[in-house]
């Protein structure tokens, strides 16, 4: 007897969640960012972001089906970070990295923020 550890299970599960998102299947919240709507799964948002954890862990917010973020949040950067949550890939480029850092700080995604800071430092 033994334990068969499926090494790619976490990635397979996350890929399926991203497929559900792309088909708006079982998405249970719409995140409104400066006029753009993003459909997502609360469980993924809460698992990846301290900000969403603090919002949805309040019982009165648990059933929210829409949430508007602070207008200072850049929708392009939010989209990048949402893709990161569902793929583990963080697309950084010189033009957006500072705004992405600010958005990651806002969403309380500290490890991503640290990566943005290291990216900025490596560029100078």
């Amino acid at each position: 007897d033994g334990c068969f550890q499926f090494t790619r299970h976490a990635g397979d599960v996350l890929l399926n969640f991203n497929r559900l998102r792309s088909r708006s299947m079982l998405t249970d919240v719409t995140v409104q960012v400066d006029g753009r709507d993003f459909h997502a799964h609360k469980a993924i948002l809460v698992a990846c972001s301290g900000f969403f954890y603090s919002v949805f862990m309040h019982p009165e917010n648990a059933n929210l089906s829409a949430i508007s973020l602070d207008p200072k949040v850049d929708p392009e950067c939010f989209s990048l970070l949402l893709d990161f949550m569902y793929t583990s890939c963080l697309n950084l480029n010189d033009s957006l990295v500072l705004a992405t850092l600010n958005t990651a700080v806002y969403l309380q995604m500290e490890h991503v923020a640290d990566t943005c800071r290291r990216f900025i430092k490596s560029r100078h």
Binding site: Q5, D12, N16, R19
Partner: peptide, 21 residues
């Protein structure tokens, strides 16, 4: 989950949800 007798299964672990039906 690194037990003494853990066998690493490298293949897919679950079904793949299609991009569309």
């Amino acid at each position: 989950y690194e037990g003494v007798n853990t066998i690493k299964e490298m293949g897919r672990s679950i079904h793949e949800i299609p991009r569309q039906d």
